[in-house]
Design a protein around this nucleic acid. Structure first.
Lengths: 195, 195
DNA sequence: GTCTATAATTAGATAGAC
DNA sequence: GTCTATCTAATTATAGAC
């Protein structure tokens, strides 16, 4: 434990990302210094630059990785055929996925403005692709008469905001469990679109 | 215009708050320097300290002032007697109030973690008081059978998240007007609680 | 009331020893 | 691969001239 130097490439790389993720989520990207991150990893500041070209790349890789995971998980999620079933499945998926990754979610929503314009554009495309999946469900349901949505784009954003909000208050071990919360949110989402 | 010095206390004070508000909203509290603010106001950095004891007080006063305004405006809002009418009125009020103050709203939700613990506690009490107003409406409606809400606290947070989300996409001059958007959100809120 | 100058600290990032 | 030392630039906040 007292070793102060040596080779730990396989440990330091992942640890760097985990520490940066937690510190960025807690204090905000702009408020966290490379020295703080280094202290959390257990190395000196200079050593971080063996694993990331700079602080911005650290943030961008965290955010892009999170959105990659989100899109991949959604694509892998089994989806019923009918619009009501699909919306309920989407809502439960969204709630559970976000509750499983509170730090990443916090960063994804809070640090967009700290990305360079190029990096921001990448994240925007990913966010848009995710929203399109929900919008397609709502349009299908509206077309078949299962839903009543005066504006599919507005309803998409309203539902995503509602569902994502769960991360701001839910704590494990509280009054309600995850499955229960996911079910209630899914029911509210269905009702909100007139299902 | 070329004047570089002199007395402008009545102008500089309000300008300082307006500039800080806009810069904090755009770049984030931690990423904005007192020199940037001073440049926006049109004075040197040192002069700012005649109007605020420090950067933290600047942030806190902006956030507390916003919540004061929110609570006062809600108290002044005429409210129908029946739960459905009250929920619709609350939803429209929330949407319109938040669309009128995009910068303040952004700061209120993004910069809580940059407050000192004492200042954070004050804001938390204010936020709680506001949420209690909506929760009371939902509990009334559930008691009279007008609403079906399995959990009033959860529904309160879900609705507030949904309604506040309007600030993330709405732009004046877009496809939908404010009144239209407020009406659609109010309808989604009513449906979400089974009205 | 504002400016200039400055103190004290900290930031991101790099060079070179080991 | 890591550490130490360092560079350059920026930070908040204050002191004193005007």
């Amino acid at each position: 434990m007292a070793r102060k130097t040596g080779s730990h490439a396989e440990i330091t790389g992942p640890r760097l990302r985990a520490v940066a993720r937690d510190l960025f989520a807690r204090h905000g990207y702009a408020a966290v210094s490379m020295r703080q991150i280094a202290a959390g990893v257990g190395v000196q500041a200079g050593a971080l630059y063996l694993y990331t070209p700079d602080k911005q790349a650290l943030l961008f890789e965290l955010m892009r990785g999170h959105m990659d995971d989100l899109l991949a998980a959604l694509a892998a999620e089994p989806m019923p055929a009918d619009p009501c079933g699909r919306l309920a499945a989407f809502a439960r998926f969204h709630v559970h996925f976000h509750l499983d990754r509170p730090a990443e979610v916090f960063i994804a929503y809070m640090e967009l403005r700290n990305l360079t314009p190029e990096n921001f554009a990448v994240l925007e495309r990913q966010r848009h692709a995710y929203e399109d999946a929900l919008e397609a469900i709502l349009r299908d349901g509206a077309a078949t008469g299962a839903f009543r949505v005066p504006d599919a784009k507005l309803a998409t954003r309203a539902l995503i905001a509602m569902l994502t909000g769960v991360t701001q208050w839910f704590r494990d071990g509280g009054r309600l469990g995850r499955a229960e919360v996911g079910a209630i949110y899914a029911e509210m989402a269905l009702r909100a679109v007139g299902a």
